[in-house]
Simulated assay, not measured.
Amino acid sequence: MTDGNDIPTTELRRTDRLLLRPPTMEDLQFLTELFARPELVAHRPVPRPDSPEESAARLAKDMAHWQQHSFGRFAVIANGELIGFGGVTVSNEFEGLNLSYHLDPRSWGHGYATELVRGILTFAFEELGARRIIGLVRPANPASRRVLEKCGFGFEGQVMLHGAPTNLYSLLS
């Protein structure tokens, strides 16, 4: 069964206000614009926007994760508009699934991040059988820290990630 866009409806997820679906190549333009926004990349070790090629590689990696694992980062839609990406992926560096999300700054302040994270946690624990989920947040990003704390994550400690201090949060099933 599909939703008319060749996306199996079994891969669609909904929260109260959000539709979550696997990413597609049609998302590339939005993703490129999203990762070109200075306020989105401000918390990276090197706070520069992605090049179009880096965005294309990011999307290809996300789509490959879906192909390999049948889950990953979702495209996030609110009010019929793509507003970002978020989900859980297999972590090669830490025990547990890695939660990440990137929302268009124009959608910040509406509670979408918290709603997205709660929906992803339900999916990961109930449908994927996850036992541990981690969230990695730069110390200079208090908004993301607050989202994780509201959703029940606890601080574990600081790690070095891509050459920069990063706070590691976790949540157990």
Rank of each mutant, 00 (worst) to 15 (best):
T114W: 11
G157P: 08
R37L: 12
I83F: 04
D104P: 00
D27I: 05
F155K: 13
V137A: 09
E156W: 06
R146C: 06
L19R: 11
E81P: 00
H65R: 10
L18F: 11
G119E: 14
C151E: 03
F123S: 03
L136H: 06
E33Q: 12
E127D: 15
V41Q: 09
E54A: 14
D104Y: 00
N141P: 06
F155D: 08
V159M: 09
P8N: 10
L20E: 06
T2A: 03
G157Y: 06
N98A: 13
G84S: 02
A64E: 15
G157R: 10
E11K: 12
Q67M: 11
E115C: 11
V117M: 08
L12T: 08
M63I: 15
T2H: 13
V117P: 04
R131T: 14
P8L: 08
S51T: 15
I83M: 05
D6M: 11
A60K: 02
E156S: 12
H43V: 07
P45C: 12
D3H: 05
H43I: 03
V137Y: 03
E149S: 11
L19Y: 05
D62I: 00
L19I: 13
P139I: 14
A113S: 13
N79W: 03
L40I: 09
P52G: 04
S170R: 06
F71S: 02
G119D: 10
A56W: 00
